[in-house]
Amino acid sequence: MELLKVQNISKQFKKIKAVDGISFTLNKGEILGLLGPNGAGKSTTISMISTLIQPDTGEILYADTSIIKKPKVIQESLGYVPQEIALYPMLSGKENLLFWGRAYGLKGKKLKDKIEEISDIIGIKDRLKDKVKTYSGGMKRRLNIGVALLHDPELIIMDEPTVGIDPQSRKHILDTVIGLNKKGMTVIYTSHYMEEVEYLCNRICIMDQGKIIAEGTKEQLIKQYNTTRDIKLKLENYSQEVLKKIELLNCVISVSLLEEEIVVKATQDKKLFKDIVDLLNDDGADIHSMDIVEANLETVFLQLTGRILRD
């Protein structure tokens, strides 16, 4: 079921076109990833979906209703986790949850119960009475998410929710997102961490310079845009001839020497690995290690833009 439909939206700030005519849909129960480097237009896109800014052109429909004309339609069903820690540091965790819960119209026992439930989910129950300014970065991030969950939103938008936190907190957040999705929550997740998007998302939109340059599942994207993989070899006592023979193999695109490693770039072929080993054995080379680096979204992005994601 289609929950959100973004149709050809654009946004320009002075001379900079932050978003340039993008379209995509979001189905109920999906985790959609917006992947792209800083400045790709991810935050502007979700700001438009969150009704914070209006697109210059295009339309955004939530449950078939224009949120540009009727922002309330999405506001009531939306949990918004901004990239920044949007909390009141002088207030305690509980006071923050109380305030934001009331801002979403919760009160009384329902609010109290919800705070209990959410503080359990985000794992800050024992620090609820402490001021937020005393929390670690990871705890603040978790509370930042917790605030967005108080009113049981149908859709949650998370804008780079794991920036600058420790691996433990990151894993907690990612597991929380998966848990919420299993309970039926639809998620839009933006990140420039490829592995997070790969881990979480059912569908991915790769953004660059305000445009969606690729869209699909991880497998679809890799298949569509990148069919190569790198085989990294650490060798001794090998001849230059054997490298030329490897380069002549059917699937091999290039062979290069990077420091002490030989990198063989090749298309997907199950037989290739065996052929390389046979040639090296025939040459009498000593093989210290062999590592196959499979294609991923990083390499898809590299393939598409010529740049790495964290540029």
Binding site: T51, P82, E84, A86, A103, Y104, V147
Partner: peptide, 13 residues
């Protein structure tokens, strides 16, 4: 600047 204003706006305020 603390981004709470944006969050409040999204919450319908």
């Amino acid at each position: 600047n603390e981004f709470t204003l944006q969050r409040l706006e999204v919450s319908g305020s």
